[in-house]
Amino acid sequence: MKLLVCVKQTPDSTVRVKVAGDGRSIDASQITWAISPYDEYAVELALERKDADPSTTVAVVTVGPTRSRDALRQALAMGCDEAILVTGAAAESLDGLAVARALAKVVEEAKPALVLCGRQASDDDQGLVGQALAETLGWPHVSTITKFRPADAGPAGSVDGIDVWREVEGGHEVWRTSGPVVLTVQKSEKEPRYPSLPGIMKAKKKEIPEKDASSLGVDAGGAKLEIVKMEPPPARGGGKIVKDGDMKQTAAELVRLLREEAKIL
């Protein structure tokens, strides 16, 4: 089975992001980049399938600036078999829909049995690309999954479709899909693996072919969304400590403050 995982390179979760001088982007000068956490879960899920069935191949793709190559290299070092970078001037300023369209072209060429995406990227949190990709391809999709595996083999040992687990309140649902499908990933059972040192050395030997986004029929002018303004959350004011009086009075004062000042009661 061939799996394709779509990843996005986003600021590492330990980085404190600042708004850039233009007021509509982030200051990228001091940023450590990483694979977006949900995408990393998607990579891990795909690799777990490969662990279970070594005939599985896992390809990873990203659409983004040239620095995104590092995210692909990391995915290769984790154990993915191949990587595709869609980049170029046009790839710098795409919105989610345009990214999905570029990915659809890659999917049509690579012909994977299924496509995995993180449920949303950790930078803009839009949660759009997976579903938009399914829609563009005309494929079904199941979102926020935690596990998948080929459906139980029939008496003849044939594999028909894929079983997919979703967490729901108090338990989980199992869906069965047939044919190619796009899955967006909530998390993996195990934490994403660290790239091992031998894995890093194997990844070093792999070429990462580059596709120009414009050659996939996607152009920068195609973006339907534009970021007008970014602003940091307002600074948090100092807290208030209620300590005068006995416990009864303190409680009464706390309730009054929560009701009248904080307006949350």
């Binding site: 290299r73 660290y194 040192l197 890093i200 050395m201």
Partner: peptide, 12 residues
Amino acid sequence: EEQQLVQRTARE
């Protein structure tokens, strides 16, 4: 690139 990845694996 490899040394950076090695450092990252070790750090994390």
